[in-house]
Nucleic acid binder design. Sequence first.
DNA 1: TCACTGACCGCATTGGTCATCTGGTCAGTT
DNA 2: AACTGACCAGATGACCAATGCGGTCAGTGA
Lengths: 242, 242
Amino acid sequence: MGPMSRLIEQASPKAGRILDSARELALRHGVHKVTIAEIAAAAGVGKGTVYLYWETKEDLFVGLIAREVLAWLDDVGGRFDADRSLVLPRRFAPMLLRTTAGNPWLRWLRSDDSALARLMHRPEDRERFAEASPGAMGSAVLGILRERGVVRDDLPLPRQMYALHALLVGFGLMMDQPDLAGGMNIADPDVALAEAVHLLLEPERDPSAKVVAEAAEAVRVRFGEIHDRLLAVVAAGAAGTR
Amino acid sequence: MGPMSRLIEQASPKAGRILDSARELALRHGVHKVTIAEIAAAAGVGKGTVYLYWETKEDLFVGLIAREVLAWLDDVGGRFDADRSLVLPRRFAPMLLRTTAGNPWLRWLRSDDSALARLMHRPEDRERFAEASPGAMGSAVLGILRERGVVRDDLPLPRQMYALHALLVGFGLMMDQPDLAGGMNIADPDVALAEAVHLLLEPERDPSAKVVAEAAEAVRVRFGEIHDRLLAVVAAGAAGTR
DNA sequence: TCACTGACCGCATTGGTCATCTGGTCAGTT
DNA sequence: AACTGACCAGATGACCAATGCGGTCAGTGA
Protein backbone atom coordinates (compact mmCIF):
# COMPACT_ATOMS: atom_id res chain seq x y z
CA MET A 1 0.00 0.00 0.00
CA GLY A 2 2.58 2.55 1.00
CA PRO A 3 1.91 6.05 2.25
CA MET A 4 1.39 7.61 -1.17
CA SER A 5 -2.17 7.24 -2.37
CA ARG A 6 -4.90 6.87 0.18
CA LEU A 7 -8.52 6.14 -0.44
CA ILE A 8 -10.49 9.31 -0.97
CA GLU A 9 -12.94 8.33 1.71
CA GLN A 10 -10.20 8.24 4.29
CA ALA A 11 -9.31 11.85 3.49
CA SER A 12 -12.88 13.10 3.81
CA PRO A 13 -15.82 11.58 5.68
CA LYS A 14 -18.13 13.36 3.25
CA ALA A 15 -16.68 11.38 0.35
CA GLY A 16 -17.33 8.24 2.36
CA ARG A 17 -20.99 9.16 2.82
CA ILE A 18 -21.32 9.78 -0.92
CA LEU A 19 -19.83 6.38 -1.68
CA ASP A 20 -22.17 4.71 0.79
CA SER A 21 -25.21 6.36 -0.75
CA ALA A 22 -24.06 5.52 -4.25
CA ARG A 23 -23.56 1.90 -3.25
CA GLU A 24 -26.96 1.54 -1.66
CA LEU A 25 -28.91 3.30 -4.41
CA ALA A 26 -27.07 1.54 -7.22
CA LEU A 27 -27.71 -1.85 -5.66
CA ARG A 28 -31.41 -1.04 -5.38
CA HIS A 29 -32.05 0.61 -8.74
CA GLY A 30 -29.06 -0.31 -10.85
CA VAL A 31 -26.01 1.76 -11.68
CA HIS A 32 -27.30 3.46 -14.77
CA LYS A 33 -30.71 4.32 -13.31
CA VAL A 34 -29.42 6.11 -10.24
CA THR A 35 -28.63 9.80 -10.69
CA ILE A 36 -25.95 11.97 -9.20
CA ALA A 37 -28.67 14.19 -7.76
CA GLU A 38 -30.22 11.24 -5.91
CA ILE A 39 -26.87 10.17 -4.56
CA ALA A 40 -26.02 13.66 -3.39
CA ALA A 41 -29.41 14.07 -1.73
CA ALA A 42 -29.13 10.72 0.04
CA ALA A 43 -25.68 11.67 1.28
CA GLY A 44 -26.99 15.02 2.46
CA VAL A 45 -24.68 17.08 0.26
CA GLY A 46 -25.09 19.30 -2.75
CA LYS A 47 -24.80 17.88 -6.21
CA GLY A 48 -21.68 19.87 -6.98
CA THR A 49 -19.91 18.41 -3.98
CA VAL A 50 -19.76 15.06 -5.68
CA TYR A 51 -17.67 16.66 -8.39
CA LEU A 52 -15.19 17.94 -5.85
CA TYR A 53 -14.15 14.37 -5.23
CA TRP A 54 -14.67 12.65 -8.57
CA GLU A 55 -14.40 14.06 -12.05
CA THR A 56 -17.27 12.07 -13.57
CA LYS A 57 -19.99 9.66 -12.62
CA GLU A 58 -17.89 6.95 -14.19
CA ASP A 59 -14.99 7.78 -11.90
CA LEU A 60 -17.28 7.63 -8.90
CA PHE A 61 -18.40 4.11 -9.68
CA VAL A 62 -14.98 2.95 -10.71
CA GLY A 63 -13.84 4.13 -7.32
CA LEU A 64 -16.76 2.41 -5.67
CA ILE A 65 -16.09 -0.94 -7.29
CA ALA A 66 -12.41 -0.56 -6.59
CA ARG A 67 -13.25 -0.05 -2.93
CA GLU A 68 -15.22 -3.30 -2.94
CA VAL A 69 -12.40 -5.19 -4.60
CA LEU A 70 -9.86 -3.73 -2.21
CA ALA A 71 -11.99 -4.75 0.74
CA TRP A 72 -12.22 -8.21 -0.74
CA LEU A 73 -8.46 -8.40 -1.17
CA ASP A 74 -8.07 -7.39 2.47
CA ASP A 75 -10.57 -10.04 3.49
CA VAL A 76 -8.72 -12.69 1.56
CA GLY A 77 -5.45 -11.45 3.02
CA GLY A 78 -6.87 -11.81 6.49
CA ARG A 79 -7.94 -15.37 5.82
CA PHE A 80 -4.43 -16.10 4.66
CA ASP A 81 -2.93 -14.75 7.83
CA ALA A 82 -5.28 -16.88 9.88
CA ASP A 83 -4.58 -20.06 7.95
CA ARG A 84 -1.67 -20.26 5.57
CA SER A 85 -2.72 -23.65 4.26
CA LEU A 86 -5.22 -21.71 2.17
CA VAL A 87 -2.55 -21.51 -0.52
CA LEU A 88 -3.18 -25.14 -1.31
CA PRO A 89 -5.08 -25.05 -4.62
CA ARG A 90 -7.86 -27.29 -3.32
CA ARG A 91 -8.55 -24.71 -0.64
CA PHE A 92 -7.58 -21.61 -2.56
CA ALA A 93 -9.91 -22.01 -5.52
CA PRO A 94 -13.14 -22.60 -3.59
CA MET A 95 -12.24 -19.72 -1.31
CA LEU A 96 -11.89 -17.40 -4.32
CA LEU A 97 -15.33 -18.30 -5.58
CA ARG A 98 -17.07 -18.41 -2.23
CA THR A 99 -15.82 -15.03 -1.09
CA THR A 100 -16.91 -13.42 -4.35
CA ALA A 101 -20.25 -15.19 -4.59
CA GLY A 102 -22.08 -13.04 -2.08
CA ASN A 103 -21.03 -9.62 -3.33
CA PRO A 104 -22.94 -8.30 -6.35
CA TRP A 105 -20.12 -5.96 -7.31
CA LEU A 106 -17.53 -8.70 -7.39
CA ARG A 107 -19.90 -11.10 -9.12
CA TRP A 108 -20.53 -8.44 -11.71
CA LEU A 109 -16.82 -8.04 -12.21
CA ARG A 110 -16.34 -11.76 -12.62
CA SER A 111 -18.98 -12.37 -15.27
CA ASP A 112 -17.67 -9.44 -17.34
CA ASP A 113 -21.21 -8.18 -17.64
CA SER A 114 -21.84 -5.96 -20.65
CA ALA A 115 -23.39 -3.38 -18.34
CA LEU A 116 -20.03 -3.00 -16.68
CA ALA A 117 -18.36 -2.43 -20.03
CA ARG A 118 -20.94 0.25 -20.72
CA LEU A 119 -20.04 1.93 -17.48
CA MET A 120 -16.26 1.69 -17.61
CA HIS A 121 -15.21 3.29 -20.86
CA ARG A 122 -11.49 3.53 -20.21
CA PRO A 123 -9.90 0.23 -21.29
CA GLU A 124 -7.05 0.75 -18.81
CA ASP A 125 -9.54 0.62 -15.95
CA ARG A 126 -11.18 -2.52 -17.24
CA GLU A 127 -7.79 -4.18 -17.56
CA ARG A 128 -6.84 -3.25 -14.04
CA PHE A 129 -10.05 -4.72 -12.70
CA ALA A 130 -9.74 -7.84 -14.81
CA GLU A 131 -6.45 -8.40 -13.01
CA ALA A 132 -8.39 -8.92 -9.81
CA SER A 133 -10.97 -11.35 -11.18
CA PRO A 134 -10.85 -14.81 -9.62
CA GLY A 135 -9.69 -16.38 -12.84
CA ALA A 136 -6.85 -13.91 -13.22
CA MET A 137 -5.92 -14.18 -9.56
CA GLY A 138 -5.79 -17.92 -9.85
CA SER A 139 -3.54 -17.64 -12.86
CA ALA A 140 -1.31 -15.06 -11.23
CA VAL A 141 -0.85 -17.25 -8.21
CA LEU A 142 -0.36 -20.41 -10.21
CA GLY A 143 3.15 -19.55 -11.31
CA ILE A 144 4.24 -18.83 -7.78
CA LEU A 145 2.82 -22.06 -6.42
CA ARG A 146 4.31 -24.05 -9.24
CA GLU A 147 7.85 -22.77 -8.69
CA ARG A 148 7.67 -23.89 -5.09
CA GLY A 149 6.27 -27.34 -5.69
CA VAL A 150 2.81 -26.65 -4.34
CA VAL A 151 1.49 -27.23 -7.85
CA ARG A 152 2.64 -30.05 -10.10
CA ASP A 153 4.96 -29.02 -12.91
CA ASP A 154 4.74 -32.00 -15.23
CA LEU A 155 2.71 -30.03 -17.77
CA PRO A 156 3.42 -26.66 -19.42
CA LEU A 157 2.36 -23.66 -17.37
CA PRO A 158 0.31 -21.84 -20.05
CA ARG A 159 -1.96 -24.83 -20.61
CA GLN A 160 -2.28 -25.34 -16.87
CA MET A 161 -3.29 -21.70 -16.49
CA TYR A 162 -5.77 -21.90 -19.30
CA ALA A 163 -7.40 -24.98 -17.84
CA LEU A 164 -7.59 -23.50 -14.36
CA HIS A 165 -9.04 -20.30 -15.74
CA ALA A 166 -11.66 -22.24 -17.69
CA LEU A 167 -12.56 -24.27 -14.64
CA LEU A 168 -13.00 -21.17 -12.50
CA VAL A 169 -15.00 -19.39 -15.19
CA GLY A 170 -17.20 -22.44 -15.56
CA PHE A 171 -17.84 -22.89 -11.84
CA GLY A 172 -18.38 -19.16 -11.42
CA LEU A 173 -20.93 -18.95 -14.19
CA MET A 174 -22.77 -22.05 -13.03
CA MET A 175 -22.99 -20.54 -9.56
CA ASP A 176 -24.35 -17.26 -10.93
CA GLN A 177 -26.80 -18.66 -13.45
CA PRO A 178 -27.90 -22.16 -12.49
CA ASP A 179 -29.71 -22.60 -15.81
CA LEU A 180 -26.29 -23.00 -17.40
CA ALA A 181 -25.94 -26.16 -15.34
CA GLY A 182 -28.74 -27.73 -17.33
CA GLY A 183 -30.91 -28.59 -14.32
CA MET A 184 -28.00 -30.21 -12.57
CA ASN A 185 -27.76 -29.03 -8.99
CA ILE A 186 -25.52 -30.31 -6.29
CA ALA A 187 -25.45 -29.33 -2.66
CA ASP A 188 -21.76 -28.64 -2.48
CA PRO A 189 -20.16 -27.10 -5.56
CA ASP A 190 -17.31 -26.04 -3.30
CA VAL A 191 -16.33 -29.62 -2.67
CA ALA A 192 -16.61 -30.46 -6.34
CA LEU A 193 -14.32 -27.55 -7.17
CA ALA A 194 -11.88 -28.57 -4.45
CA GLU A 195 -11.73 -32.11 -5.80
CA ALA A 196 -11.34 -30.93 -9.37
CA VAL A 197 -8.55 -28.51 -8.51
CA HIS A 198 -6.86 -31.16 -6.42
CA LEU A 199 -6.79 -33.61 -9.31
CA LEU A 200 -5.88 -30.92 -11.81
CA LEU A 201 -3.06 -29.14 -10.01
CA GLU A 202 -1.80 -30.81 -6.89
CA PRO A 203 1.16 -33.21 -6.78
CA GLU A 204 0.94 -36.68 -5.27
CA ARG A 205 2.27 -35.65 -1.89
CA ASP A 206 1.27 -32.52 -0.04
CA PRO A 207 4.11 -30.03 0.34
CA SER A 208 5.76 -29.57 3.72
CA ALA A 209 4.47 -26.97 6.15
CA LYS A 210 7.58 -24.89 5.54
CA VAL A 211 7.05 -24.82 1.78
CA VAL A 212 3.40 -23.94 2.32
CA ALA A 213 4.30 -21.05 4.59
CA GLU A 214 6.82 -19.66 2.13
CA ALA A 215 4.40 -19.96 -0.76
CA ALA A 216 1.72 -18.23 1.28
CA GLU A 217 4.11 -15.40 1.95
CA ALA A 218 4.93 -15.00 -1.74
CA VAL A 219 1.25 -15.05 -2.62
CA ARG A 220 0.55 -12.36 -0.04
CA VAL A 221 3.17 -10.17 -1.67
CA ARG A 222 1.44 -10.72 -5.01
CA PHE A 223 -1.85 -9.70 -3.45
CA GLY A 224 -0.18 -6.53 -2.26
CA GLU A 225 0.88 -5.68 -5.81
CA ILE A 226 -2.62 -6.15 -7.17
CA HIS A 227 -3.90 -4.11 -4.27
CA ASP A 228 -1.55 -1.21 -5.04
CA ARG A 229 -2.33 -1.15 -8.73
CA LEU A 230 -6.03 -0.96 -8.00
CA LEU A 231 -5.34 1.84 -5.57
CA ALA A 232 -3.71 3.72 -8.43
CA VAL A 233 -6.95 3.43 -10.38
CA VAL A 234 -8.85 5.01 -7.53
CA ALA A 235 -6.33 7.81 -7.26
CA ALA A 236 -6.53 8.48 -10.99
CA GLY A 237 -10.29 8.89 -10.74
CA ALA A 238 -10.13 11.36 -7.87
CA ALA A 239 -10.67 14.96 -8.92
CA GLY A 240 -7.70 17.27 -8.93
CA THR A 241 -5.13 14.58 -9.65
CA ARG A 242 -5.35 14.58 -13.41
CA MET B 1 -34.02 -43.47 -35.44
CA GLY B 2 -36.53 -46.12 -36.46
CA PRO B 3 -38.96 -45.91 -39.33
CA MET B 4 -41.51 -43.81 -37.48
CA SER B 5 -40.77 -40.12 -37.72
CA ARG B 6 -38.72 -38.92 -40.64
CA LEU B 7 -37.36 -35.48 -41.18
CA ILE B 8 -39.84 -33.30 -42.98
CA GLU B 9 -37.27 -32.46 -45.64
CA GLN B 10 -37.01 -36.11 -46.59
CA ALA B 11 -40.75 -36.24 -47.22
CA SER B 12 -40.79 -33.16 -49.45
CA PRO B 13 -37.94 -31.59 -51.39
CA LYS B 14 -39.78 -28.29 -51.16
CA ALA B 15 -39.46 -28.35 -47.38
CA GLY B 16 -35.76 -28.97 -47.83
CA ARG B 17 -35.38 -25.92 -50.04
CA ILE B 18 -37.22 -23.81 -47.48
CA LEU B 19 -34.91 -24.99 -44.74
CA ASP B 20 -31.85 -24.25 -46.86
CA SER B 21 -33.03 -20.74 -47.59
CA ALA B 22 -33.92 -20.14 -43.96
CA ARG B 23 -30.49 -21.31 -42.91
CA GLU B 24 -28.65 -19.11 -45.34
CA LEU B 25 -30.68 -15.97 -44.72
CA ALA B 26 -30.69 -16.37 -40.95
CA LEU B 27 -26.92 -16.80 -40.88
CA ARG B 28 -26.51 -13.64 -42.94
CA HIS B 29 -29.04 -11.37 -41.27
CA GLY B 30 -29.84 -13.05 -37.98
CA VAL B 31 -32.83 -15.18 -37.08
CA HIS B 32 -35.13 -12.45 -35.90
CA LYS B 33 -34.39 -10.11 -38.79
CA VAL B 34 -35.20 -12.55 -41.53
CA THR B 35 -38.84 -12.75 -42.57
CA ILE B 36 -40.96 -15.64 -43.71
CA ALA B 37 -41.66 -13.78 -46.94
CA GLU B 38 -37.91 -13.52 -47.68
CA ILE B 39 -37.39 -17.18 -46.96
CA ALA B 40 -40.28 -18.23 -49.15
CA ALA B 41 -39.09 -16.01 -51.99
CA ALA B 42 -35.53 -17.33 -51.75
CA ALA B 43 -36.86 -20.88 -51.82
CA GLY B 44 -39.04 -20.06 -54.80
CA VAL B 45 -42.31 -20.91 -53.07
CA GLY B 46 -45.30 -18.96 -51.86
CA LYS B 47 -45.44 -17.66 -48.33
CA GLY B 48 -48.36 -19.91 -47.48
CA THR B 49 -46.40 -22.98 -48.47
CA VAL B 50 -44.12 -22.54 -45.50
CA TYR B 51 -47.15 -22.93 -43.27
CA LEU B 52 -48.01 -26.22 -44.92
CA TYR B 53 -44.90 -27.71 -43.32
CA TRP B 54 -44.49 -25.76 -40.09
CA GLU B 55 -47.11 -24.22 -37.88
CA THR B 56 -45.13 -21.14 -36.91
CA LYS B 57 -41.87 -19.38 -37.63
CA GLU B 58 -40.66 -20.68 -34.30
CA ASP B 59 -41.33 -24.26 -35.35
CA LEU B 60 -39.44 -23.70 -38.58
CA PHE B 61 -36.31 -22.60 -36.77
CA VAL B 62 -36.63 -25.21 -34.08
CA GLY B 63 -36.71 -27.73 -36.89
CA LEU B 64 -33.75 -26.09 -38.54
CA ILE B 65 -31.59 -26.12 -35.43
CA ALA B 66 -32.69 -29.66 -34.72
CA ARG B 67 -31.51 -30.62 -38.18
CA GLU B 68 -28.11 -29.11 -37.45
CA VAL B 69 -27.85 -30.92 -34.15
CA LEU B 70 -28.94 -34.19 -35.73
CA ALA B 71 -26.31 -33.79 -38.42
CA TRP B 72 -23.76 -33.13 -35.71
CA LEU B 73 -24.81 -36.23 -33.83
CA ASP B 74 -24.42 -38.23 -37.02
CA ASP B 75 -21.01 -36.71 -37.58
CA VAL B 76 -19.92 -37.60 -34.08
CA GLY B 77 -21.35 -41.08 -34.53
CA GLY B 78 -19.31 -41.50 -37.66
CA ARG B 79 -16.15 -40.49 -35.88
CA PHE B 80 -16.93 -43.06 -33.24
CA ASP B 81 -17.31 -45.80 -35.80
CA ALA B 82 -14.00 -44.87 -37.34
CA ASP B 83 -12.14 -44.78 -34.05
CA ARG B 84 -13.68 -46.22 -30.91
CA SER B 85 -10.92 -44.92 -28.70
CA LEU B 86 -12.73 -41.60 -28.94
CA VAL B 87 -14.69 -42.64 -25.86
CA LEU B 88 -11.62 -41.97 -23.76
CA PRO B 89 -12.44 -38.76 -21.93
CA ARG B 90 -9.20 -37.08 -22.99
CA ARG B 91 -10.23 -37.56 -26.59
CA PHE B 92 -13.97 -37.29 -26.16
CA ALA B 93 -14.11 -33.86 -24.53
CA PRO B 94 -11.93 -31.99 -27.05
CA MET B 95 -13.85 -33.65 -29.86
CA LEU B 96 -17.14 -32.37 -28.44
CA LEU B 97 -15.88 -28.81 -28.37
CA ARG B 98 -13.99 -28.89 -31.63
CA THR B 99 -16.87 -30.29 -33.64
CA THR B 100 -19.25 -27.69 -32.26
CA ALA B 101 -16.86 -24.75 -32.55
CA GLY B 102 -17.25 -24.19 -36.26
CA ASN B 103 -21.03 -24.29 -36.48
CA PRO B 104 -22.82 -21.08 -35.47
CA TRP B 105 -26.04 -22.93 -34.67
CA LEU B 106 -24.37 -25.36 -32.31
CA ARG B 107 -22.25 -22.63 -30.75
CA TRP B 108 -25.40 -20.66 -30.21
CA LEU B 109 -26.98 -23.64 -28.53
CA ARG B 110 -24.00 -24.11 -26.27
CA SER B 111 -23.74 -20.58 -24.95
CA ASP B 112 -27.45 -20.56 -24.14
CA ASP B 113 -27.69 -17.22 -25.89
CA SER B 114 -30.61 -15.08 -24.81
CA ALA B 115 -31.56 -14.65 -28.46
CA LEU B 116 -32.22 -18.36 -28.59
CA ALA B 117 -34.45 -18.16 -25.53
CA ARG B 118 -36.35 -15.36 -27.27
CA LEU B 119 -36.88 -17.61 -30.24
CA MET B 120 -37.77 -20.87 -28.53
CA HIS B 121 -40.68 -20.12 -26.27
CA ARG B 122 -41.70 -23.67 -25.44
CA PRO B 123 -39.65 -24.80 -22.43
CA GLU B 124 -39.99 -28.43 -23.54
CA ASP B 125 -38.08 -27.62 -26.71
CA ARG B 126 -35.34 -25.79 -24.88
CA GLU B 127 -34.95 -28.75 -22.53
CA ARG B 128 -34.68 -31.19 -25.39
CA PHE B 129 -32.00 -29.09 -27.03
CA ALA B 130 -30.16 -28.60 -23.77
CA GLU B 131 -29.88 -32.38 -23.66
CA ALA B 132 -27.67 -32.24 -26.71
CA SER B 133 -25.35 -29.48 -25.50
CA PRO B 134 -21.73 -30.55 -25.07
CA GLY B 135 -21.92 -30.18 -21.31
CA ALA B 136 -25.02 -32.31 -21.06
CA MET B 137 -23.66 -34.89 -23.48
CA GLY B 138 -20.52 -35.14 -21.44
CA SER B 139 -22.56 -35.66 -18.31
CA ALA B 140 -24.83 -38.21 -19.96
CA VAL B 141 -21.87 -40.21 -21.13
CA LEU B 142 -20.02 -39.91 -17.86
CA GLY B 143 -22.20 -42.40 -16.03
CA ILE B 144 -21.76 -45.00 -18.74
CA LEU B 145 -18.01 -44.63 -18.84
CA ARG B 146 -17.77 -44.75 -15.09
CA GLU B 147 -19.67 -48.00 -14.77
CA ARG B 148 -17.25 -49.63 -17.14
CA GLY B 149 -14.07 -48.37 -15.59
CA VAL B 150 -13.16 -45.93 -18.33
CA VAL B 151 -13.64 -43.15 -15.79
CA ARG B 152 -12.35 -43.28 -12.24
CA ASP B 153 -15.01 -43.92 -9.60
CA ASP B 154 -13.24 -42.83 -6.44
CA LEU B 155 -15.39 -39.71 -6.15
CA PRO B 156 -19.17 -39.32 -6.16
CA LEU B 157 -20.71 -39.15 -9.62
CA PRO B 158 -22.76 -35.95 -9.15
CA ARG B 159 -19.73 -33.90 -8.18
CA GLN B 160 -17.74 -35.43 -11.02
CA MET B 161 -20.50 -34.47 -13.43
CA TYR B 162 -20.71 -30.98 -12.07
CA ALA B 163 -16.98 -30.45 -12.41
CA LEU B 164 -16.89 -31.82 -15.93
CA HIS B 165 -19.83 -29.68 -16.91
CA ALA B 166 -18.15 -26.59 -15.47
CA LEU B 167 -14.93 -27.39 -17.28
CA LEU B 168 -16.71 -27.80 -20.60
CA VAL B 169 -18.75 -24.65 -20.10
CA GLY B 170 -15.60 -22.74 -19.22
CA PHE B 171 -13.59 -23.98 -22.19
CA GLY B 172 -16.54 -23.43 -24.50
CA LEU B 173 -17.08 -19.88 -23.40
CA MET B 174 -13.40 -19.02 -23.56
CA MET B 175 -13.30 -20.36 -27.10
CA ASP B 176 -16.34 -18.31 -28.10
CA GLN B 177 -15.44 -15.05 -26.37
CA PRO B 178 -11.68 -14.76 -25.93
CA ASP B 179 -12.08 -11.64 -23.80
CA LEU B 180 -13.32 -13.92 -21.02
CA ALA B 181 -9.84 -15.41 -21.02
CA GLY B 182 -8.45 -12.13 -19.80
CA GLY B 183 -5.92 -11.71 -22.57
CA MET B 184 -4.61 -15.23 -22.08
CA ASN B 185 -4.34 -17.04 -25.38
CA ILE B 186 -2.78 -20.37 -26.05
CA ALA B 187 -2.24 -22.08 -29.36
CA ASP B 188 -3.81 -25.38 -28.40
CA PRO B 189 -6.80 -25.22 -26.08
CA ASP B 190 -7.65 -28.72 -27.27
CA VAL B 191 -4.55 -30.13 -25.68
CA ALA B 192 -5.16 -28.19 -22.48
CA LEU B 193 -8.66 -29.62 -22.31
CA ALA B 194 -7.40 -33.10 -23.03
CA GLU B 195 -4.86 -32.85 -20.23
CA ALA B 196 -7.39 -31.42 -17.81
CA VAL B 197 -9.96 -34.11 -18.56
CA HIS B 198 -7.29 -36.76 -18.31
CA LEU B 199 -6.29 -35.64 -14.84
CA LEU B 200 -9.86 -35.07 -13.78
CA LEU B 201 -11.52 -38.25 -14.94
CA GLU B 202 -9.21 -40.98 -16.11
CA PRO B 203 -7.89 -43.79 -13.93
CA GLU B 204 -4.21 -44.57 -13.57
CA ARG B 205 -4.17 -47.26 -16.21
CA ASP B 206 -5.91 -47.03 -19.55
CA PRO B 207 -8.75 -49.53 -19.94
CA SER B 208 -8.31 -52.53 -22.20
CA ALA B 209 -9.31 -52.37 -25.84
CA LYS B 210 -12.25 -54.64 -25.13
CA VAL B 211 -13.60 -52.40 -22.40
CA VAL B 212 -13.15 -49.38 -24.64
CA ALA B 213 -15.05 -51.06 -27.46
CA GLU B 214 -17.93 -51.99 -25.20
CA ALA B 215 -18.10 -48.52 -23.70
CA ALA B 216 -18.08 -47.01 -27.17
CA GLU B 217 -20.98 -49.23 -28.11
CA ALA B 218 -22.98 -48.16 -25.05
CA VAL B 219 -22.24 -44.51 -25.76
CA ARG B 220 -23.41 -44.92 -29.34
CA VAL B 221 -26.69 -46.30 -28.06
CA ARG B 222 -27.02 -43.27 -25.82
CA PHE B 223 -26.40 -41.03 -28.81
CA GLY B 224 -29.20 -42.81 -30.59
CA GLU B 225 -31.59 -42.01 -27.76
CA ILE B 226 -30.73 -38.33 -27.81
CA HIS B 227 -31.05 -38.46 -31.57
CA ASP B 228 -34.55 -39.94 -31.39
CA ARG B 229 -35.79 -37.50 -28.81
CA LEU B 230 -34.66 -34.59 -30.94
CA LEU B 231 -36.39 -36.17 -33.89
CA ALA B 232 -39.58 -36.10 -31.83
CA VAL B 233 -39.18 -32.35 -31.44
CA VAL B 234 -38.95 -31.93 -35.18
CA ALA B 235 -42.01 -34.09 -35.71
CA ALA B 236 -43.95 -32.12 -33.13
CA GLY B 237 -43.17 -28.91 -34.97
CA ALA B 238 -44.34 -30.22 -38.33
CA ALA B 239 -47.77 -28.95 -39.36
CA GLY B 240 -50.68 -31.35 -39.18
CA THR B 241 -49.26 -33.47 -36.39
CA ARG B 242 -50.57 -31.48 -33.48
C1' DT C 1 -59.23 -32.99 -55.44
C1' DC C 2 -55.57 -30.85 -53.27
C1' DA C 3 -50.99 -28.86 -53.21
C1' DC C 4 -50.11 -24.43 -53.51
C1' DT C 5 -50.48 -19.30 -53.66
C1' DG C 6 -50.45 -14.31 -52.35
C1' DA C 7 -53.78 -10.65 -51.03
C1' DC C 8 -55.35 -9.60 -46.74
C1' DC C 9 -55.77 -8.72 -41.46
C1' DG C 10 -54.55 -7.50 -36.79
C1' DC C 11 -50.86 -6.56 -34.19
C1' DA C 12 -46.07 -5.95 -32.79
C1' DT C 13 -42.07 -3.22 -33.97
C1' DT C 14 -40.03 0.60 -35.83
C1' DG C 15 -38.37 5.31 -36.66
C1' DG C 16 -39.02 10.01 -35.72
C1' DT C 17 -40.32 13.82 -32.61
C1' DC C 18 -39.99 16.47 -28.75
C1' DA C 19 -40.56 17.49 -23.82
C1' DT C 20 -38.13 16.08 -19.91
C1' DC C 21 -34.29 14.84 -17.40
C1' DT C 22 -29.23 14.25 -16.44
C1' DG C 23 -24.32 14.91 -16.09
C1' DG C 24 -21.43 18.49 -15.54
C1' DT C 25 -20.21 23.77 -14.75
C1' DC C 26 -19.53 27.84 -12.23
C1' DA C 27 -20.96 32.25 -10.17
C1' DG C 28 -22.26 33.03 -5.87
C1' DT C 29 -22.95 32.04 -0.73
C1' DT C 30 -21.40 30.91 3.78
C1' DA D 1 -11.79 27.77 0.99
C1' DA D 2 -15.38 24.61 1.05
C1' DC D 3 -19.52 24.10 -0.61
C1' DT D 4 -23.96 24.82 -3.10
C1' DG D 5 -27.76 24.68 -6.53
C1' DA D 6 -29.43 27.33 -10.67
C1' DC D 7 -28.22 26.73 -15.18
C1' DC D 8 -26.90 24.69 -19.88
C1' DA D 9 -26.26 21.48 -23.74
C1' DG D 10 -26.88 17.13 -24.89
C1' DA D 11 -28.79 12.53 -23.80
C1' DT D 12 -32.99 9.98 -22.82
C1' DG D 13 -37.21 7.88 -23.26
C1' DA D 14 -42.34 8.46 -23.63
C1' DC D 15 -45.32 8.79 -27.29
C1' DC D 16 -47.51 8.00 -31.70
C1' DA D 17 -48.06 7.14 -36.58
C1' DA D 18 -46.65 4.18 -40.12
C1' DT D 19 -44.58 0.41 -41.63
C1' DG D 20 -43.92 -4.45 -41.97
C1' DC D 21 -44.54 -8.70 -39.79
C1' DG D 22 -46.55 -13.54 -38.82
C1' DG D 23 -50.29 -16.02 -39.77
C1' DT D 24 -54.97 -17.01 -42.47
C1' DC D 25 -57.82 -18.51 -46.09
C1' DA D 26 -60.52 -17.93 -50.32
C1' DG D 27 -59.12 -18.84 -54.59
C1' DT D 28 -56.29 -21.07 -58.53
C1' DG D 29 -54.88 -24.47 -61.64
C1' DA D 30 -52.93 -28.84 -62.60
